[in-house]
Amino acid sequence: MIKLFSVKEKAKKESAEAAVTGKKKSSAGELRIQKDISELNLAPGFSIEFPNGTDDLLHFEITLKPTEGYYTGGTFLFGFEISDNYPHDAPKVKCLTRNVFHPNIDLEGNICLNILREDWKPVLSINSVMYGLNFLFLDPNPEDPLNKDAAKMLRDNPRQFEQVVRNGIRRGW
């Protein structure tokens, strides 16, 4: 590699030249999420809010109003947290709507969705996560339960499951 330091210049004592450093350096995660958001296609039923304004894309909330399946008519809010290491790290997503009765969501709002954990890949994007969430509400999966009771009911008594979900939606999830 190149010679950077030489005896003659005495490795010039770095003058603290008053370079105006300007804006805080954006993290790689921030640069990538700008790309994701600039290309976001909100599928029907989805909306997005940036609670801290348009300059903080690392925290946002996505609302899903399913138009098909058991959860039609409900409104479900998800909190997204993007780390500085995104997309190396998956976004952290929680269901903020409380007490949702769903086999793959527990009562604290944790979501069992493979692409949010074991199957996350940096080529995925916020669009992919929204597809995943949409699918989870269209086709709840009793085989990978996070809420055992919901999974068991969906498997053993789908009519009753449907009723419980309907009641929940009526109560205003």
């Binding site: 998956a90 793959n104 527990d106 944790n110 979501i111 069992c112 493979n114 954990r117 074991e118 996350w120 990978d144 339960p145 996070l146 055992k148």
Partner: peptide, 9 residues
């Protein structure tokens, strides 16, 4: 990363 459902169930 382990699947959450594995951890839970």
């Amino acid at each position: 990363k382990y699947p959450l459902c594995t951890l839970a169930e």
